[in-house]
């Protein structure tokens, strides 16, 4: 197993290298360069002034030369460079935001598992019951509704109309110190948005996996042995039904991260999504590279996690 993980981690190097080259090429070749933003669309700014700005940032060289220096800086100085916009180190900017995004994603993921799995198991065990139909309905709405729409609707209802919950941010404007209750109130709507959207797919996968397992011969055997339905479902069926679903984790984390980007925008949460989106609008290449690479690492780790989890849950799977 250790060898497997080590091998997979080594495999990350060419993967991330490839992603970084493609990303750098894409942002450099995309229309609408950094000069316009940097010159602040100054009314009087001349071509010569813009050339100076680009030269000072090294942007007057071909993209592959720029990329080489970006990579060299990363390898030699372990630095992702500094933001073109505010001159702060990209890593500092990212480390300020990562905990916030992880907090939102982590809480949403926990909520999804805690809500979706029990409902899915119940729905599978009581196929075609009212709960099953309701769960299916909720799942389809969750599938169909975009994250930003769900977020705005929740905001409108609970924040603007009912005024039960704050409209955005992670703390009240007037607060001077960290307060857990306040933090929880601020996180309810963003986490609820991600949970509502995310649990739809989770519920559907878990339900079908469960139904499939429940129709297996060994479940019939267990029932014939006289085991209680509870034991059959939780001890025999669920453990097996979880197996295919666990692979979803790897695929689901990137989707959750994308969702978090929307949610951060809607709820004004200063996380990675906020940072990445602004970097794109501002053509802040070092920050775009930094946030993209971090997302790539996140996705790669998610996949690795899924493979490892697979082996842990199913003793038949060996990677050595």
């Amino acid at each position: 197993m250790t060898t497997f993980i080590a091998r997979r981690l080594l495999g990350f190097i060419p993967l991330l290298l490839g992603i970084s080259i493609v990303t750098y090429a894409l942002i450099s070749l995309a229309p609408g360069g950094a000069a316009g933003v940097l010159s602040g669309m100054s009314r009087q700014s001349t071509e010569a002034d813009r050339k100076i700005l680009l030269h000072n940032l090294g942007l007057d060289r071909p993209w592959y030369v720029q990329y080489f220096f970006w990579l060299k800086n990363l390898v030699v100085n372990h630095s992702l460079g500094t933001s073109y916009i505010d001159g702060r180190p990209v890593l500092t900017k990212i480390f300020e935001k990562v905990p916030v995004t992880l907090e939102v994603i982590g809480l949403a993921f926990a909520c999804i598992l805690l809500i979706a799995i029990p409902i899915a198991v119940y729905a599978a065990a009581h196929k075609n019951s009212l709960v099953d139909h309701l769960a299916t309905l909720v799942a389809f709405i969750g599938y169909g509704a975009p994250t930003f729409w769900v977020g705005i609707m929740l905001l409108e209802l609970f924040s603007v109309q009912l005024r039960w919950l704050p409209a955005g941010g992670l703390a009240d404007i007037q607060s001077t110190h960290f307060d857990l209750g306040e933090r929880v109130r601020h996180l309810i709507l963003p986490v609820a948005t991600l949970t509502l959207v995310g649990m739809a797919s989770w519920m559907r996968y878990q339900r079908s996996a469960m139904i499939e397992v429940l129709s297996e011969d060994y479940i019939r055997t267990a029932a014939a042995k006289g085991l209680s339905r509870r034991t059959i479902i939780f001890k025999h069926a669920l453990r097996n039904a979880l197996l295919p679903v666990i692979t979803l984790v790897g695929l689901f984390l990137p989707a959750l991260l994308t969702g978090a980007y929307f949610v951060e925008t809607i709820f004004t949460i200063p996380g990675m999504g906020y940072l990445a989106l602004n970097a794109v609008f501002e053509r802040d290449y070092p920050v775009i590279m930094g946030t993209t690479m971090l997302s790539a690492v996140f996705v790669a780790l998610g996949n690795l996690l899924a493979d490892v989890a697979y082996a842990v849950v199913d003793p038949r799977i060996r990677y050595d």
């Binding site: 705005i152 905001l155 409108e156 924040s159 603007v160 005024r163 704050p166 409209a167 955005g168 941010g169 404007i173 007037q174 951060e264 925008t265 809607i266 709820f267 004004t268 906020y274 989106l277």
Partner: peptide, 21 residues
């Protein structure tokens, strides 16, 4: 003076409607 930054016009509008700013 507390200057709160919002990501979008809708977010700023909701903050005004909510009375945050």
């Amino acid at each position: 003076v507390y200057i709160k930054e919002y990501e979008s016009n809708p977010a700023a509008l909701i903050a005004l409607q909510h009375g945050d700013v």
